[in-house]
Structure formats: C-alpha cells, structure tokens
Design a protein around this nucleic acid. Structure first.
Lengths: 225, 225
DNA sequence: CCAAATCTTTATAAAATCTTTACAACTTTA
DNA sequence: TAAAGTTGTAAAGATTTTATAAAGATTTGG
C-alpha cells in the first residue's frame, strides 16, 4: 500500500468494482461514490490524491460536478466517459480535468495515466527519509541529523554513510565499500576505510569508542544498525 | 501572442505546417525540429514551455528521445504518435510524457490538452512570495528584497538565486546548477559558479565571509537556507 | 556608436578535504 | 596468554576545491 488515495465516482456498479480491484491490486487506497452529491461530500470530507470522475452521473451533469469540484479541489481529476465527442473532451479539459479517457479503456493505459498525473502533481511532498534511532538521513536533500541537529559530513563521509544506511543490517565488506566509494582500483586501500569510519563515528556516535550504529565485523567489514 | 513557446518535433513537413498554423493562430510562439538531434539541441538552447514530440523520428527511437529530454527538461511533453498500442502509450507515459495523442487527432482536443498540461505545470512553480529570514523573493515580479530593501540582481544572478530558493534545503550539485543556468555544454565550468556565488553572497549575506544563506557543500554543490 | 553593465577568464590566496604515516589498541587463534 | 593479524586514532603533508579580485571581452541600452 503506497497510501495514495483515489476516489472513484461512477454510477455503474460493475465499473466501480473493476476499478476498485485494478487500483487496489496496484497498491492504491480506494474510496467510491456512485452519484454527484456523494462524490462532492466524500471529496470534501476526506480529499483524495486523485479523482476518477465519470461524466454520466444520474443526479447531475458531469461537467457541472467537475466545475464544482474545481472551485476548491486542486489535485488531479481524470475523466472517464463513454462520450468521445470533441466537444465533451475540450469542455472537460478546459474545466480543469487533467486527462480524459474514453470508455472502454485499457487498464494498463489508465494506470499509466494515473501515474503520469500523480507524478506531475507531486510538488515535493515525499522526501525519502531514513530513520535509525536518533539518526535521520534525508536522501533527497542530502541532510544527516543526529537528535534533530544537522551533522556536517564531507562528500566522501556522506557517500559512505548513505551507503551503510541504505544497507542497514547487512554486513558490507571492505572490498565492496572501497569499490563503491573510491572505485575498483582502491579495493586494497583498507586504511582509507578505517580513517573514514573513525571520522564518521566521531560525528554520529554518542561514544565513538563504543559505537552502536557502525559495527565492526572483524576481518569482514562493517554493518550499520 | 501570449509568449508561451511550444516546440514541435515531427519529421513530416505537412504535420509541422498544420501544427504551426494551428498553434500560431492560437497565440502560441512556435519553433520546430524535424529530427531527434535537432530537437534536443533546440530544447537545450532555448527551452520551450511545452514540447510536442512525434515518436516516429527518422534518426532515433522516440522513446529514447523522450528519456534523453527528461534527464533535465521538466516542463510538459505531449506525445503525438501514429501508434495506439497500449505498450507504446504506457511506456511513453512512464518515461515522463504528460499526455499521449494518437494521430490523426482533432485539433480542438489537442489545444485543450495543451491548455490542460500548461495549466497544471504552471500551478507547480507559482508560489508568488518566498521568504527566508530577512530575504524575500517574489517570483512573479522577479524582485528580491533583503530587510525590505530591494536588491538589484543581474539576470544570471537572479536565475541562480531563484533556483536555489526554489530548492531550499536541498543540495544542488555544480553539475545541475551549471546545466540549469548556463546550459548542458557548461557543466564543467565550475568557475562561473564560484564567481556568481561570490557575487550573490556580497549582495544578500550580512557577512559574505560567513554565509548563512548560501552554504558550500565542498565537492558537491551549494545549499540554500 | 558609445558608455555602462554584465559576463568570462585569469591569477592567486585560503580553506577544506583527502592521503599517508606512525603507532596504539583491539581480536583472533593456537 | 602470547603472537599475529586487524582495526582505531591523531596528526602532518599533499592535493583538491573554493573564494575573491580584477582585467579583458562581450552585450545591452540609450
């Protein structure tokens, strides 16, 4: 489950069911509405990341529903419609729809279009943040924190630290670390590693003499916890 | 003329001509490329607001062209293709295309889809006033203030400053900054960056010798706070 | 066209980082 | 537990990277 919620708005039960299964099996969180009124209430109460909107609703014209939603809802809306007339398509897009798919559509294409609009609507919300006890590593902004305090690392120290973090729990061999950080021709320069591990421990361990994060596996390599 | 520039990439002269007329009569500024190489050069030299990309180019596979563009080009790309297979559509959308239209398409729909992607791409970078301590940046009027006083920046200085502001907190690499500000062929001219960073610091830092806003990440790049 | 502004290039100083050395401390193994 | 092998640490030296000023080249605006 990637925690992205999608609201399906369609009056036909079979289509809702089909969409529900498709989306859920692709790790989306799904909610449903079968008419315009319900759709607007649900969207308002618990705004989803994306709305799939059928234009042919029983209680209100789909274009009106779209306009009402767009008065305040800024996230993507994809139209699903049985009508393929240019007039409908242009009107929907100009009313703020992000995409328009004509029924029947191919599920692969629907999923790709969902990924596409979600991608471009994604501002900066998710920065992959790794947490290890009192240590945080933000990969996108390249920031390491210890107890909320930013720790200043040189580029080599950061490369080593992030590599250890990305493989937390695993033992990384000297050979592997040297190859990844310094390159294949440095695989025998174990002393580099010792110097940099010591520097890292000084910066991130409470007591560098009794490390709890960077563990030595004698004769093999290091492990990050 | 609304000053929005669109780059048409298609090898067929008739289609280019048709698109040119359609777009120009709808107040877009239009440039053209008839092959992959030319397209990439044009997009790099003078990045348009949107690219219409035909997948069937003579000199290179369209999907590859799309990938190459997406390495650095962040604005919308709409694919125009004679192929309607689900495989092509999904692949293009997952490679970063914002929309996919199958030829022959209706011009009204094309224009509506152009408006749609331009609209959502505009939403992203519109946060009128950015504030960072004693610094203000108004993106729409291009005005920078330090303690209410307007700071006069040259266009290159402004480009650099606003790029840093828009990514505050993150480390931006030399490579990235050079590519964004000066273009892909300047990625090794690190000295430019040093000169302009120094000029910016003179203008916006209280003490340029002890910068608090533009932070050097040695060996990597710069970070704005 | 000229003058001012801006950008590019060069030179050099300063700072930060990396590499190497020497030796101390720890682990493993017999 | 002693010897051998491995790892840790500090600090000096070497190298790389960055900062800055200023001169030359180019562009821009009047």
């Amino acid at each position: 489950m990637n925690n992205v919620e999608i609201l399906i708005v369609d009056d036909e039960v079979q289509i809702r069911k089909m969409l529900f299964i498709t989306l859920q099996s692709n790790a989306y969180k799904v909610s449903e509405a079968s008419n315009a009124k319900d759709a607007i209430i649900r969207a308002a109460n618990h705004p989803p990341e994306l709305i799939l909107l059928d234009l042919g609703l029983p209680d209100e014209n789909g274009h009106i529903v779209l306009q009402k939603l767009r008065e305040w809802y800024t996230k993507p809306i994809i139209i699903l419609s049985a009508h393929s007339s240019e007039e409908d398509i242009v009107k929907a897009l100009d009313n703020g729809a992000n995409d328009y798919l004509v029924k029947p559509f191919r599920t692969g294409e629907l999923l790709a279009r969902i990924r596409s609009v979600l991608r471009s609507s994604k501002l900066e919300d998710e920065s992959p943040l790794l947490k290890f006890g009192d240590l945080d590593l933000d990969l996108s902004s390249r920031i390491v924190r210890k107890k909320e305090e930013v720790v200043k690392l040189t580029s080599t120290e950061y490369a080593l630290f992030s590599l250890l973090c990305k493989n937390d729990g695993k033992v990384l061999t000297h050979h592997y670390l040297l190859k990844q950080i310094w390159g294949p021709s440095y695989v025998n320069e174990s002393q580099y590693l010792r110097v940099f591990i010591a520097q890292l421990r000084k910066k991130i361990e409470d007591d560098p003499n009794r490390p709890t994060h960077i563990i030595t596996e004698s004769g093999v390599g290091y492990r990050f916890l």
